[in-house]
Design a protein around this nucleic acid. Structure first.
Length: 807
RNA sequence: GCCGGUGUGGCGGAAUGGCAGACGCAUGGGACUUAAAAUCCCAAGUCAGCAAUGGCGUGUGGGUUCGAGUCCCACCACCGGCACCA
């Protein structure tokens, strides 16, 4: 078969007949199959794209043939830093390069031969789309889920510019190599933490990879504990700490504040002023790398103040140390030297006494620090209580006295969405000297991204330098005002695109609620695992927030999720230009065609694991295609006499039904490689029949027809062509996927392994379903010589597998 | 350090606690051919043996079980995520 010719032929016919158009009338049978949309940073689809889209399309076709009305859209996540960087380097405007890349990629995506319904295509960088991204921002703002506050950005003092995290990796500027510092800017945040509990508790109900669920849970990082209030000696300052180990409070040896805590300046005594100031400066100057290293030696200085332990009145020093994070909990912690590894080391360094307040439950372990739960000692009225009970009892008592409370904290932080970048959706806010931050009225959306902007890095947000963009009037008071100069994080665009797809042309609303309630949630979402804690979490947050605003009526956007693995270079390393191990799919596709290429991807790897590229597999898949084509054509050129159904026919039919069963199950679980292996076995069985039977029965033809149907989702152009060659009616994809008859899969006679003491010693053939006694008798007879007259103690029969004789 | 995952022939990879290595690649042999290619068929974990056959085999060491790649305990290596979260 001339792959090139049949691919363009069928792609044309599929398009002309609108074969993959989503039929809205059949939405009750919908199946929303979605792959993470493409990011057009490079001009071309690489092996990773194919590995995502090819198998996913096979799955979509399978669902279609199973009778679902598959909604399968595609689009582009088109804003973002790479296009802007490319523009800085080459002078080509991001809009120009992005649209050009999209065009190229669209062409390539069409040539995959996928079932996308392009009517629903969207590009996040168009005003028709980002108008609604801005609308989303306004809704979040209206509902108190967007707020602004000062937050640090990565700053390169030499380039005089803001850097994205990925440009500041290792604390060094990507461009010039200088040390990255921090600078505070007023920026917008989304209050994702307000949904922390629901985001966490909802995870268990999702059909997602366990690994991804675990990552998201850890990322949210809920910890139950409490706050305890320490009075500061000689002042009326109350200092609150967060702890998960309130049971150790009688053993507090010191209290630590984060250097950024506002209490530091209040509490520091005159004698300690110089030392504390010095310490604050040093930790502020510490680079990202130093701060992030957990092997870094713990440092800290005393403030000179003393805190009073609310449970026993003991006075302990108040220190400043930068291992305490200002933004978590209260920015202050209590140190319990006897029961915490780090506190133990730190207290010894400072020469503080260590007192044990927890004993192991069985009294076996008396080494310090003792960090396990145990039984309280030296803890007054709580002595003898277990840690588990005491944690609550102590907090409850403190709560009664107004000196503490139960408290839950999260590792999850609010989502910083401001980017000091050009190529993104402008933030629809106007800053007015009199009215403050004023939302742009919805009827004024979109706030258009101006085209002619100088985005070379020189220390300003690019939009700030564009007067025609910046200068506006306040919608409230009408006086001159400035627009927000920042753009939105591209993750905002991708947090709701799956909601836009079903209604992508709606000019009045982001989507019609009644309609998307029917199409969503997404039934199968397929994409990379690297999005576990960002995109997938943000999208869930958006869904829940929009639900609470009444714009939709489901809780989770993606019911079922699959991550494809990573295709590595032939050397087993991640493909990268610098390693020189990047494999382009183009050559292979030119040589073998899109179908062979995608089947190779499905056959050669475990889909969720991926693995190193291996050229030789393509040849073998190509050979399989030719093998299929030969036998199918041969079979259909044949005429059949009325041959009786014999053993061979029965066997062929059995393999057929077994294949249908296995392939169907394997496809449902994305086990493409074993599904194809079963199809190969099926083809082998057909060849065996072809070679072994003189007078062929018409069942042979049915089997060949089923082969084409079964293989169609894997090799769409190839099977559509075969289907036509066979004289069948267009299209093979309007045919139902073959179903199997359980009875036909059952063998009349089965082979059982016979073991003596679990070692293989022989084999027997028995009738399927033969009574236990017969099986035992046959087995014992088979290995009688080896039993050597030893008495049989026990016989274990595993149905359809083996007989184990214990002597 | 914490969380998660992976470890199986020469290679990619299969195996609801039940014959390890399906399917394929590479390899060897045969058929067809004047010949080669293509095709079709067969063999093949490894060690010893002419062979029948036997021993050993799923990262390592233990354990549970009639039976363990699979379950449990300890450890090693690699990969991914988090990284002072109190």
């Amino acid at each position: 078969m001339d792959y090139k010719q049949i691919e363009s032929k069928w792609q044309r016919i599929w398009a002309e007949t609108g074969l993959y158009k989503f039929d809205k009338e059949k939405v009750d049978k919908k199946f929303y199959c979605l792959e993470m949309f493409s990011y057009p940073s490079g001009a071309k689809l690489h092996a990773g794209h194919w590995y995502n889209y090819g198998p996913a399309d096979t799955f979509a076709r399978f669902k279609r043939m199973q009778g679902f009305e598959v909604f399968h859209p595609m689009g582009f996540d088109a804003f973002g830093l790479p296009a802007e960087n490319y523009a800085i380097k080459t002078g080509i405007h991001p809009e120009e390069s992005t649209l050009k890349n999209i065009e190229t990629m669209e062409g390539q995506l069409r040539r995959i031969g996928a079932t996308y319904d392009w009517d629903y295509e969207l590009k996040t960088c168009t005003p028709e789309y980002y108008k609604w991204t801005q609308w989303m921002f306004l809704q979040l703002f209206k509902h108190g889920l967007a707020y602004q506050k000062d937050a640090p950005v990565n700053w390169c003092p030499s380039c005089n510019t803001v850097l994205a995290n990925e440009q500041a990796q290792g604390g060094v500027c990507e461009r010039c190599g200088s040390q990255v510092t921090h600078k505070n800017l007023n920026q917008w945040f989304f209050k994702i933490t307000q949904y922390a509990d629901e985001l966490l508790d909802g995870i268990d109900k999702l059909d997602w990879p366990e690994k991804t669920k675990a990552m998201q849970k850890n990322w949210i990082g809920r910890s139950y504990g409490g706050e305890i209030e320490f009075a500061v000696k000689g002042t009326d300052v109350k200092l609150r700490v967060f702890t998960t180990r309130a049971d150790t409070v009688f053993g507090v040896t010191y209290v630590v504040l984060a250097p950024e805590s506002p209490l530091v300046d209040i509490l520091t005594t005159a004698e300690q002023k110089a030392a504390v100031e010095d310490y604050k400066e040093r930790s502020a100057a510490a680079t990202e790398i130093e701060r992030m290293s957990s092997t870094r030696e713990k440092t800290g200085v005393p403030t000179g103040a003393y805190a009073i332990n609310p449970v026993n009145g003991r006075e302990v020093p108040v220190l400043v140390a930068d291992y305490v994070i200002a933004s978590y909990g209260t920015g202050a912690v209590m140190g319990v030297a006897a029961h915490d590894e780090r506190d133990f080391v730190f207290a010894q360094k400072l020469g503080l006494p260590v007192e044990r307040v927890i004993k192991s439950k069985d009294g076996s372990d008396d080494t310090l620090p003792y960090t396990e739960y145990g039984v309280l000692v030296n803890s007054g009225e709580f002595d003898g209580m277990t840690s588990e009970d005491a944690k609550l009892a102590i907090l409850k008592k403190l709560e009664k006295e107004g000196k503490g409370c139960l408290k839950t904290n999260y590792r999850l932080r609010d989502w910083l969405v401001s980017r000091q970048r050009y190529w993104g959706a402008p933030i629809p806010i106007i800053h007015c000297e009199h009215c403050g931050a004023v939302p742009v009225p919805e009827e004024d959306l979109p706030v258009r991204l101006p085209h002619n902007v100088n985005f070379t890095p020189d220390g300003e947000s690019p939009l700030k330098k564009c007067d025609e963009f910046m200068n506006t009037v306040c919608p409230v008071c009408g006086r001159p005002a400035k627009r927000d100069a920042d753009t939105l994080d591209t993750f905002v665009c991708s947090s709701w695109y799956y909601l836009r797809y079903p209604d992508s042309k709606n000019a009045d609303k982001p989507f019609d609620t009644e309609w998307i309630d029917k199409v969503l949630p997404v039934d199968k979402y397929i994409g990379g695992a690297e999005h576990a804690c960002m995109h997938l979490l943000y999208a869930r947050f958006f869904t829940k927030a929009l639900r609470d605003m009444g714009y939709l009526h489901f809780d989770e956007p993606f019911l079922s999720l699959v991550h494809q693995g990573t295709i590595l270079g032939p050397d087993g390393n991640k493909m990268s230009k610098s390693r020189g191990n990047v494999v382009s799919p183009d050559d292979s596709i030119v040589k073998f065609g899109a179908d062979v290429f995608r089947v190779y991807l499905m056959f050669g790897f475990n889909y969720v694991e991926g693995g190193p590229w291996n050229e030789s597999g393509l040849e073998s898949v190509n050979r399989f295609f030719e093998r299929v084509e030969r036998i199918v054509k041969k079979c259909f050129a044949m005429s059949f006499e009325d041959a009786p159904i014999g053993k061979s026919e029965k066997e062929l039919n059995r393999v057929r039904h077994n294949t249908i069963k296995s392939v169907t199950n394997d496809l449902a679980t994305f086990s493409f490689n074993t599904a194809i292996a079963r199809l190969m076995e099926y083809v082998n069985a057909i060849y065996a029949y072809e070679a072994g039977v003189e007078k062929k029965h018409a069942i042979y033809k049915e089997c060949a027809k089923d082969l084409v149907l079964l293989f169609a989702p894997f090799a769409p152009h190839f099977c559509e062509e075969l289907w036509e060659v066979l004289g069948e009616k267009y299209s093979v994809f309007n045919q139902p996927y073959p179903t199997y008859d359980e009875k036909a899969t059952i063998l009349d006679e089965i082979e059982l392994a016979v073991q003596i003491n679990s070692k293989l010693r022989g084999r027997i053939m028995v009738a399927n379903g033969a009574p236990k006694e017969d099986v035992e008798k046959a087995a014992v007879a088979e290995v009688a010589a080896q039993l050597d007259g030893k008495p049989v103690k026990k016989i274990i029969i595993v149905p359809k597998r083996l007989v184990n004789i214990i002597v």
